[in-house]
Simulated scan of single mutants.
Amino acid sequence: MNSSAAKFKHVSEYGIRQLVDAFYAKVRLDPELAPIFERAIPGDWQPHLTKMYAFWSSVMLTTGRYKGNPVVKHLVIPGIQPPLFERWLALFDETCRELFEDAVSEEFRSKAERIAESLKLALFYRPGRPWPPEQAP
Rank of each mutant, 00 (worst) to 15 (best):
G15A: 10
G15D: 09
I16E: 08
I16F: 11
R17P: 12
R17K: 15
R17A: 15
Q18M: 11
Q18H: 14
Q18W: 02
Q18N: 11
L19H: 00
L19G: 01
L19I: 11
V20A: 10
V20M: 07
V20I: 04
D21N: 15
D21G: 05
A22H: 08
A22V: 04
F23G: 13
F23N: 12
F23I: 02
F23A: 10
Y24N: 09
Y24F: 14
Y24K: 02
A25S: 14
K26I: 03
K26M: 08
V27C: 10
V27M: 06
V27W: 05
R28K: 14
R28S: 15
R28C: 12
L29S: 12
L29A: 13
L29C: 12
D30S: 01
D30F: 04
P31I: 04
P31N: 04
E32R: 11
E32I: 12
E32D: 14
L33Y: 10
L33W: 06
L33T: 13
L33K: 08
A34H: 09
A34Y: 02
A34I: 03
A34N: 11
P35Y: 06
I36A: 00
I36D: 00
I36C: 00
I36R: 00
F37E: 07
E38G: 00
E38Q: 15
R39S: 14
R39W: 00
R39F: 02
A40T: 09
A40K: 06
A40R: 07
I41Y: 11
P42Y: 04
P42E: 00
P42W: 03
P42V: 06
P42H: 07
W45Y: 13
Q46M: 14
P47S: 13
P47L: 05
H48E: 06
H48C: 05
L49I: 11
L49D: 11
T50C: 05
T50I: 04
K51L: 05
K51Y: 01
M52F: 03
M52C: 03
Y53V: 11
Y53E: 09
Y53M: 08
A54M: 00
F55W: 06
F55P: 10
W56M: 02
W56E: 06
W56T: 03
S58D: 13
S58P: 01
S58T: 09
V59H: 03
V59R: 07
M60F: 00
M60H: 05
M60T: 04
M60E: 00
L61E: 11
L61Y: 05
L61T: 05
L61Q: 04
T62W: 05
T62M: 06
T62N: 14
T62P: 02
T63Q: 07
T63M: 02
G64T: 02
Y66G: 04
K67Y: 04
K67L: 09
K67F: 07
G68I: 11
P70K: 03
P70V: 12
P70R: 05
V71N: 11
